[in-house]
Computed example of a mutant assay.
Amino acid sequence: MSSVQQQSSSGSDGSASVDEKKRKRMLSNRESARRSRMKKQKQMDDLTSEITRLEMSNNQLQQGIEVKERGYAEIESRNNVMRAQVMELTDRLQSLNSVLQIFEEVSGLAVDIPEIPDPLLRPWQVSYPTQLIPASSDMFLG
Rank of each mutant, 00 (worst) to 15 (best):
M1T: 03
V4R: 09
S9M: 11
S10C: 08
G11Q: 04
S12N: 15
S12H: 11
S12C: 08
D13A: 14
D13I: 09
D13M: 13
G14S: 11
S15Q: 02
S15N: 05
A16Y: 09
V18W: 01
D19K: 06
K21G: 07
R23A: 12
K24Y: 11
R25Y: 05
S28N: 08
E31D: 14
S32K: 11
R34T: 02
R34Y: 07
R35T: 05
R35D: 14
R35P: 01
S36Y: 05
S36L: 06
M38L: 14
M38S: 13
K40F: 10
K42E: 15
K42R: 15
Q43F: 06
Q43S: 13
M44R: 04
M44C: 01
L47Q: 06
S49W: 08
S49Q: 14
E50D: 10
T52H: 11
R53C: 07
L54Y: 03
N58E: 09
N59V: 00
Q60C: 04
G64V: 10
I65W: 09
V67A: 14
K68V: 07
R70F: 04
G71S: 15
Y72C: 06
A73G: 06
I75P: 01
E76Y: 09
E76C: 06
E76Q: 12
E76I: 05
N79I: 06
N79D: 08
N80W: 08
M82V: 11
R83I: 03
Q85A: 00
V86K: 04
V86S: 03
V86P: 03
E88T: 10
E88A: 12
R92G: 15
L93H: 05
S95L: 06
S95D: 08
F103Y: 04
F103W: 01
E105G: 01
E105D: 05
V106K: 12
V106A: 10
S107V: 02
L109I: 02
D112H: 12
D112T: 11
P114R: 07
I116E: 00
P117L: 09
P119N: 02
P119Q: 03
L120N: 14
L121W: 10
L121R: 15
R122A: 12
P123Q: 11
P123Y: 09
W124I: 08
Q125W: 02
Q125S: 05
Y128F: 07
T130I: 12
Q131K: 10
L132G: 12
I133L: 15
I133E: 12
I133S: 13
P134M: 09
S136Y: 04
L141E: 14
G142K: 13
